[in-house]
Amino acid sequence: MSTTANRMPGSLRLLTTVFLALWLVAAVFPFAWTVWGSFKVEPDFFSRTSFWDAIEGVRTQMQTGSAFTLDGYRGAWIENDFWRSAINTLIVTISVTVISLTIGTLGGYALARSGQRYAFWILIAALVFRAMPHITLVSGYMLPFFQMNIWGILPTTIIVLVAINQPFTLWMLHSFFLSIPKDLDESALVDGCTRFQAFRLAVMPVMWPGVITTGLFSFLLAYNDFAVTSMLLSQDNQTMIPKIASFLGSIQESGNVMFAVAAVVSATVPLFILVLFFQRQIVSGLTAGAVKG
């Protein structure tokens, strides 16, 4: 694109730059603003007089003696047990990712290598399942789970999230397996491996990039979920996202919105780190689904 024939005229160049600058501000500013504001007191972040208060922290200085305060974080993490939710989130996301990938790689491999009519129909069914709104499925679980007395605990939520995750995981891993030449496992079969040995010893070692990418998306789905975790977990077992939602209801009246702001910022940090380190995998994962799926 850098050849002279493609060099842009000045006006277009300017227009593109302005547009891009506007978008980047729109994409980043809300996060920057909220992170900055989470270290202020409520009358500054929600200032009746001027937004400049939130930047300088006038009232924060008056109330706490410094322009930055950790009160919001203290209130969320210590007084309201947000650390417990963080641990629950850790358990749920890691379990969901590991189980999803384990059964997903097996299934995706079978779908990619079968070539039968029913493999195609399983993929189409998975596409339809992928489109089901999660909350409608949840309303199907609730009553049976109450009856079986398994409502409210982490394992139930983990299994449900794995199942909801499966259609997407299958599609993605299936398309990654398709990109691995068949000769690889066939030569392993000729050498006397069973199917499972061929899968484990010949195919899996070259599948790691695909597994990591798919794992990222499984992680994101479990981490970002609100519909399932808010309905299926009891108060004590809540993960971070439903915990934030329940903050909103209970603290709005006592005037401690800043707890929720601090909790929101805390829940955002892991996602930032994830994008920072795995940007390339996330981009390639989205496009792999698009190009091949």
Binding site: I103, G107, I122, F129, L137, Y141
Partner: peptide, 21 residues
Amino acid sequence: AFIFPSILAMVLFITLPIFSV
């Protein structure tokens, strides 16, 4: 054998809930 766990999860937690609903 390969696809069974996946299918089981989807049938139990996606297909059955639809009927349950």
